[in-house]
């Protein structure tokens, strides 16, 4: 069961929670499920490396529209926001994914485009990896939720469980992470939109142990000695 999302979906979360991998792979999975007109915008003004823009060529080849600052500013010391983002929000396609920078600092950018949302509140999903500092407790996740909502001037609408230790992830990490986001869900009242699992673990996962959709992750943000996964596979 893959996630079924439409309209404007904003991906937020604490620094390093895995928002960009989630955003890229959600775009690809939705495109593969037949959603025509998937667009993804890189709003990360916080991270200097490892951003959505690293996967732009693969996404373009699949026919997914990537909204980015002009090429010559891609490695600017002070990252900039493309004016095309407001246009995308005002005239959304079937699925519009906004990949936002980490923490409330990264979410500040949403207040800058708030007018474009008009009176239609978008979906805003909080990505949680309980193996990251500051979100290893539900209280930590609740604090980050409050800070992001205040900075973005938007309400959180769901949770994405992204438990992983990159190459050292096994199915138990996924099950543990799933239990963790269920606890966060109970205490926050937010539904779990989906959890993620590396595509290599999908066959080992018991779907009966996961009470929500699972987004397979083909890892894109890899160091220079690794190789990013082929987004077109499967």
């Amino acid at each position: 069961m893959t996630p079924d999302l439409k309209g404007i979906v904003i991906i937020v979360g604490n620094y390093g929670s895995g928002k960009t991998e989630v955003a890229i792979n959600l775009a690809v999975a939705s495109h593969a499920e037949g959603v025509a007109g998937v667009r993804i915008a890189d709003l990360d003004l916080v991270n200097p490396y490892f951003r959505t823009r690293e996967a732009r060529h693969q996404l373009h080849r699949l026919g997914i529209d990537v909204v980015l600052p002009p090429e010559k500013y891609l490695h600017a010391d002070l990252p900039i926001l493309s004016p095309d983002v407001a246009g995308m929000i005002k005239q959304p396609g079937p699925l519009n994914i906004l990949d936002v920078g980490g923490d409330h600092v990264g979410a500040n950018v949403l207040a800058a485009v708030a007018d474009a949302f008009g009176d239609k509140p978008p979906q805003m999903l909080q990505v949680v990896n309980p193996y990251r500092p500051f979100t290893e407790t539900v209280a930590g996740c609740m604090k980050i939720r409050r800070e992001i909502e205040a900075a973005a001037k938007l309400d959180m609408t769901g949770i994405v469980g992204n438990a992983n230790l990159i190459d050292e992830t096994d199915v138990n990490v996924i099950y543990e992470g799933h239990r963790f986001v269920q606890r966060f869900s109970r205490e926050s009242g937010l539904p779990v939109a989906f959890v993620t699992a590396d595509v290599g673990l999908m066959t080992d996962l018991d779907p009966d142990r996961l009470a929500c959709p699972v987004l397979p992750i083909r890892r894109q943000l890899v160091p220079p000695w690794g190789r990013s996964a082929n987004l077109a596979a499967g």
Binding site: N129, Y131, N164, L165, I166, E168
Partner: peptide, 14 residues
């Protein structure tokens, strides 16, 4: 147990 950290964060914690 193991945690997932950026090098910069890990340097601070260390």
């Amino acid at each position: 147990g193991k945690v997932l950290m950026k090098g910069n964060e890990a340097i601070g914690e260390a």
